[in-house]
């Protein structure tokens, strides 16, 4: 039992990356845009977050660098990268009305390519590797709650022992939930995703909503990539370490039935599955086979989700379809 609690507590770091990826994609999909390029956008967020933090430090010097500002720069850098990727996606699908599935796959190829390219280019340029100094690394890992809260039995470490990005992710999820359910703009956005023709007839600027949702959603997903490189990967760029995180996020969106609040515990669950082989050891069971467990679980989840045809848990009705006003 203690092992399970320790596992969940340790999963928070990995889960945070998934959480941002999932929440961003929920925002995008709510507008009716199915962006399968989350993998590419998280890659881009990962490298540009690291590079902005690294450049900031190079600019002000190791002693003058402040952790908080470095984090801010990393967030901004990754968010901007995701926004640009979202803009490309929105331009091709909303304005040029290309197939969303293939555009998403192209975004995956493009994004991973850009990230690997920038990573290798920076490595060549700086000699050795791209990273940040130790005290900045610490500030990325910092835990904000005092120690006595973490000593609460069982749940203390799970709730209070996470890096600050974790709480930021929860905040974003709650804000997004409130946006969807409590504001007029959120209602409009959902209308665009459910039935663009109706929204258009009601005078909602469908193009603007889809563009903004895809860009901001892409930005949030990209922050997830940054969180991964700055926490789990230890502030260095390891090619391929981010592989699969973006795709798991896309799967999580289905698992969470397009609800941001479900994204919080959903990502905790999948974060736990990802690192389970390190914490709960099954004797004589080969580790490499153990590592594919999260993917098997994802498939099982996908099948179960599709078997239960619950009306409440459906994707936005127009997900993945483009809208052209003069077409019926």
């Amino acid at each position: 039992m203690t092992a399970i609690f320790a596992l969940i507590a340790a999963a928070g770091t990995y889960a945070t990356a998934l959480m941002f990826g999932t929440i961003g994609e929920i925002l995008t999909e709510k507008s009716g845009n199915l962006n399968l390029g989350v993998e590419g956008m998280m890659y881009m967020g990962g490298i540009f977050g690291l590079v902005t933090a690294n450049r900031y430090e190079a600019l002000v010097g190791e002693t003058g660098s402040v952790g908080f500002i470095a984090i801010l720069f990393a967030i901004l850098g990754s968010f901007a990268a995701g926004c640009i990727a979202g803009l490309i996606f929105a331009f091709i699908t909303v304005t040029l009305r290309a197939n969303q599935n293939v555009t998403g796959l192209a975004m995956t190829t493009f994004g991973t390519g850009v990230a690997k390219f920038v990573g290798e280019h920076m490595r060549n340029k700086l000699g050795g590797y791209v990273s940040v100094s130790n005290h900045l690394k610490e500030s990325f890992h910092q835990q904000i709650f005092p120690d006595f809260l973490k000593r609460i039995p069982f749940v203390g470490k799970i709730v209070f022992g996470q890096p600050h990005f974790f709480y930021l992710g929860i905040l974003v999820a709650i804000l997004l939930h409130l946006f969807f359910t409590k504001t007029k703009k959120g209602l409009y956005l959902r209308a665009v995703g459910e039935s663009p023709a109706t929204a258009d007839a009601a005078g909602i600027n469908m193009t603007r909503y889809r563009y903004l949702a895809t860009m901001i959603g892409g930005g949030i997903s990209a922050i997830g990539g940054m969180v991964y490189t700055m926490t789990t990967a230890g502030c260095v760029w390891i090619e391929g370490s981010l592989s699969g995180v973006g795709w798991l996020s896309v799967a999580l969106v289905i698992f969470c039935t397009w609800r941001p609040l479900n994204g919080i515990w959903g990502s905790m669950l999948f974060g736990s599955l990802m690192i389970m082989y390190l914490w709960i050891i099954i004797p004589f069971f080969p580790q490499e086979l153990y590592k594919i467990l999260p993917y098997v679980v994802t498939i099982v989840v996908l099948i179960i989700a599709s078997m239960k045809n619950n009306k409440e848990k459906q994707p936005p009705a127009n997900l993945g379809l483009n809208y052209f006003r003069e077409e019926r």
Partner: peptide, 24 residues
């Protein structure tokens, strides 16, 4: 000349983008 080999992925991604866009 030391250009990262991942340029191939970028070019093929852009190729796909352009091809998808040009259908319009």
């Amino acid at each position: 000349v030391g250009v990262p080999a991942s340029v191939a992925e970028i070019v093929s991604g852009i190729l796909l983008f352009c091809m998808l866009g040009c259908e319009f």
